[in-house]
């Protein structure tokens, strides 16, 4: 366990040490040393009464709520719509062109639109994230629901499996490997869009901290924001992969033996 951790992570301290040495040698204000960034982070964000300072709570929490909340909304909407479109032929005939168009729009392009459409604040961020991440989920759900093995559905018909069970016990599980492929993409995309949407027209959030640090030419503050975002992205991805591994055990097993 420890040996594998060492083998996987040994490069991290090496890179940090090189950075530290380089930064000290250069003494440039644009390249703060890792120790300086760390002490900056500690003073500003992690020296509060319950570890986090007020500034950290006021900005991390809104970001986290936005990214998780918007992602959840996109998952529910994308999977529900996707399965409906994938299983109902006439619906897909109508909706397919719209979907093709919607997915082709680069998500950040909608940010200015939403800034005009909604008053400043969380609505803008939620709209940007949901609109951006719903496409991979939707497309993969459509594909997954469309390609359910006909023999599995016939088996369900023969044994009179009721409609609700057919959806939850057959169509959704059968589509789940593809749905999860879309979800995986959407997790990283949600984080990207969260930052972008907070850079402009926001009064709190990690993206807002980044943009104020940038305006004040506060280099340690900028790097600190980057570090927090990296850690947050890593944590969200790890959580997601854990969930995926649990849900798709059967799929990995079936693929290994096939």
């Amino acid at each position: 366990m420890i040996a594998t951790l060492v083998r996987r992570l040994w490069l991290v301290p090496v890179v940090l040490a090189c950075w530290e040495l380089l930064a000290r040698a250069q003494a440039s204000p644009y390249l703060p040393a890792p120790t300086r960034i760390a002490s900056w982070m500690y003073e500003r964000w992690f020296s509060g009464p319950y570890v986090l300072t007020e500034e950290a709570v006021d900005n991390f929490v809104p970001s986290l709520v936005r990214v998780v909340g918007s992602w959840s909304v996109a998952v529910v909407a994308g999977v529900a719509l996707g399965v409906a479109i994938g299983r109902v032929a006439w619906l897909s005939d109508y909706v397919d062109p719209l979907v093709e168009f919607g997915r082709a729009v680069p998500p950040p392009a909608m940010l200015p639109v939403f800034l005009v459409l909604f008053t400043m604040g969380t609505q803008v961020q939620v709209a940007t994230i949901v609109f951006g991440v719903v496409w991979p989920i939707l497309l993969n759900s459509i594909d997954g629901a469309r390609t359910v093995d006909p023999l599995q559905l016939e088996t369900a018909t023969v044994f009179g499996v009721p409609a609700r069970l057919r959806l939850f016990r057959i169509i959704l599980p059968s589509a789940s490997p593809k749905i999860f492929a879309g979800l995986r993409l959407s997790v990283s995309l949600a984080l990207i869009l969260m930052v972008i949407s907070e850079l402009k027209g926001s009064t709190d959030g990690i993206g807002y901290l980044l943009s104020t640090a940038s305006n004040n030419a506060d280099m340690p503050g900028l790097w600190a924001g980057v570090v927090v975002l990296g850690v947050l992205g890593f944590a969200l991805n790890s959580l997601f992969l854990m969930a995926e591994r649990r849900v798709l055990t059967w799929h990995r097993g079936a693929r290994r033996t096939a």
């Binding site: 093995d149 088996t155 059967w250 079936a254």
Partner: peptide, 15 residues
């Protein structure tokens, strides 16, 4: 009831 030839497709692999 029906028993299909292709058991690998007619059984549900997630159950």
């Amino acid at each position: 009831a029906v028993v299909f030839q292709d058991y690998s497709r007619s059984l549900f692999p997630w159950m």
